[in-house]
Design a protein around this nucleic acid. Structure first.
Lengths: 231, 231
DNA sequence: ATAAGTATCTTACCGTTGGTTAGATACTTA
DNA sequence: TAAGTATCTAACCAACGGTAAGATACTTAT
């Protein structure tokens, strides 16, 4: 019944001659992206778990049934929001990495950017990892959006290995360990028992600093702790 | 209106003479714990985000309004489920630690137990870290239930430090780093991009093994990797 | 024992939600 | 300009969280 409608209307904003870009005529123009944007805005006031499709449609100024011409499902709308947020996160981490400093400093800035994104956009961050976006039958789009960030991390690890700064382990596995550490720290800070420690900017930086240092240097006594990185 | 009712009826199962322990009379006996138990069972078939108070009451054989005499809120019921699950997790990790082997082996078994609990009870694990259980006004009970596990981890770290196996850093911070790593790995495995890698028992063990090793030994080239732990 | 008081449960109701269907409106294209 | 199609609204449904009023049973004082 409604199979290929989403694709056919995806990116077609300024094709025909409309009076205003935000045309308020019967047909909206690009309701799909407008709904995603509206969802991000509604998300700022509503919990991620209680995000209502009807509230999003209300915010966009359309009836809730209109949304079903652009998204198969409420979950599909949420998935689109998640992909949008993933792209934003990927952009933020890349931007942090491409700033000045040594290779290791830029890497650490990238690590911090991941957590800072979670702290600055907690609702979006929660959406990105909602269980129903994975367990559902086919949701490969969200998966690929998430994997892009992972692949970038792998490339950073490889660069660090080529510069002889990181052990020559499987970069894929190192990236996973790194991601797990960052992701765990972020979720514990926004939804877990660390959310009290993360209230002040000082507390956040300390948490990020010590955790990444522990991963970088190890916590076993047999591993030495050089001071060249305490910076 | 309903302030001290929950406390007054908490633990009073076999006080008066009832014919059967699972008395199906008008008054239930201990509906509160029955609802928590029912919620855990319903949770096995329903997603954690879509857990319905009415379905839980239905499963327990009572009307949904009856639940409101034992829980202020749907969130309060979920909080009780989370506390129940936290206690189960704490018990599992302690049990893993108290098994045979060296101190480090027992510690690593405890780390693995955390992730295995998440993999074996993903729905309960998700409930434990639902955002609404933290951001809500006063939900200190869930917090303390979660903190108990953390404090136990701190004590394990301290034991490792006394045995000269772990650097003499602040044990609190080390425990946080450890928890972040384990928690991140667990969530990425059940709700994140690693859930494909975690389908086989082999894949899970490899993920746990390499990640904990990375944290224990560090990934920087300046840190050495002793083989006494590769086991 | 009995009556009053209280805790717990059911039934009935409310507004909101996710989702579907039928019909209205506008864009597209021949 | 007419037919066809995409997109929207209005109306409807079942299920949900939550509340209020009344039914039932346990408790306790007398």
């Amino acid at each position: 019944m409604s199979s290929s409608k989403q694709e056919s209307s995806s990116k077609r904003v300024s094709s025909s001659g409309q009076k205003t870009p935000t045309a308020k005529s019967y047909h909206h123009g690009d309701l799909r992206t407008a709904l995603v944007k509206a969802a991000r805005e509604v998300l700022l006031e509503t919990g991620a778990g209680k995000l209502s499709l009807r509230a999003v449609a209300r915010h966009a100024g359309v009836s809730h049934a209109a949304a079903y011409y652009h998204f198969e499902d409420k979950t599909s709308l949420i998935a689109a929001v998640a992909i949008d947020a993933f792209e934003e996160l990927n952009h933020a981490t890349k931007a942090a990495y491409e700033q000045g400093g040594s290779l290791l400093e830029r890497s650490k800035a990238m690590f911090a950017a991941y957590i800072n994104f979670a702290l600055e956009h907690p609702q979006a961050f929660r959406i990105m990892f909602l269980p129903e976006l994975r367990s559902d039958a086919v949701r490969t789009d969200v998966e690929t959006a998430g994997r892009q960030g992972h692949e970038f991390t792998v490339s950073v690890i490889q660069q660090l290995q080529q510069a002889d700064q990181v052990v020559k382990d499987d970069p894929e596995r190192i990236a996973i360990s790194l991601w797990a550490m960052l992701h765990g720290l972020a979720t514990l800070m926004i939804d877990g028992p660390l959310y009290r420690n993360a209230k002040t900017q000082q507390g956040r930086e300390t948490l990020i600093q010590t955790a990444t240092d522990h991963l970088l240097h190890g916590i076993l006594h047999t591993a030495n702790m050089p001071e060249e990185l305490s910076e």
